[in-house]
């Protein structure tokens, strides 16, 4: 790929981010002006200054999404291995699609009823579990194509040499899967981070993640505020990506 194409592609990728950032500091944008006529930080001040505990929400969101992503990635990695080596692999795997054959909004409405009955309603644990329902099967599908005969024989080798299952994971499977694990983790982190419907219905607003706090602003008539809320939603995952790039992106990633 030529250097020019590369730069053009990167420019294309960065455009939405630049566009949203530009609008978030704008005021008065009559047609056909290409850029807003005035610039102001007033929206940022209004939202950051006016929303008590926004920082706590960020912490809560990070904690929730990290827990969901860690649990789901770990569990689905472990479970998908047992599915992949099962004789009826395809039939098992088809179960993983179940959560996605149901319209998400209705899923939330149905689950709300069951979570109330189970007494998990309005709690951090309840929201965590609800998010596992949508992230875990995704992880299983994600890892389903990872397992193959080559890995299996490597695992066998560890066993023959007297290693335990734990050692097989620690010394062989996890190092080989590192890239895939990180990619999956990031995907699941994002799903959890942006989750609105279930988190709101199951948490009854008592688990006020950042997404819950600013989500409604994205539907605001004030486009500058909507753009600002969009930035607030997007920037933390981008920062995570940036922090992790050394770990994730120097690796060869196996889907």
């Amino acid at each position: 790929m030529s250097r020019f194409t590369k730069i053009a592609l990167i420019g294309l990728i960065l455009f939405p981010f630049a566009f949203l950032l530009m609008l978030s500091v704008g005021r008065q944008w009559p047609y056909p002006a290409v850029f807003p006529e005035q610039w102001a930080l007033s929206n940022w001040q209004l939202v950051l200054g006016g929303s008590e505990g926004l920082g706590n929400s960020v912490l809560l969101s990070v904690l929730l999404s990290l827990s969901v992503a860690t649990l789901s990635t770990g569990l689905s990695f472990w479970v998908s291995r047992h599915i992949a080596y099962h004789p009826k692999r395809e039939a098992w795997l088809s179960l993983a699609y179940f959560p996605y054959v149901f319209a998400p909004v209705i899923l939330a409405a149905c689950l709300q009823f069951f979570f109330i009955v189970a007494g998990l309603y309005g709690t951090f644990g309840g929201v965590l579990l609800a998010q596992l329902f949508i992230t875990f099967p995704y992880g299983v599908i994600f890892f389903s194509s990872f397992w193959n005969e080559r890995l299996r024989s490597m695992e066998e080798l560890v066993k023959t040499l007297g290693g335990s299952t734990l050692q097989a994971y620690a010394k062989v499977l996890v190092p080989v899967a590192k890239g895939a694990l990180m990619t999956c983790f990031f995907q699941l982190f994002l799903i959890s981070w942006f989750e609105y419907g279930l988190t709101n219905l199951i948490g009854v607003g008592k688990v006020p993640t950042l997404t819950l706090r600013v989500f409604q602003y994205v539907n605001e008539a004030n486009i500058f505020l909507a753009a600002l809320a969009s930035c607030l939603l997007i920037l933390p995952p981008v920062a995570l990506l940036w922090l992790n790039r050394a770990v994730v992106f120097r690796e060869r990633i196996v889907p």
Binding site: A109, Q112, I116, V117, Y121, N200, K206, P208
Partner: peptide
């Protein structure tokens, strides 16, 4: 504690709570 939810969310939440026989509303 201010939580987010418009008319439909309120009604849906109340309906689900009533249906599930919850004795103390969230």
């Amino acid at each position: 504690n201010i939580v987010s939810g418009q008319g439909a969310t309120i009604v849906q939440t109340m309906m689900a709570e009533l249906q599930a026989g919850k004795t103390e509303s969230e």
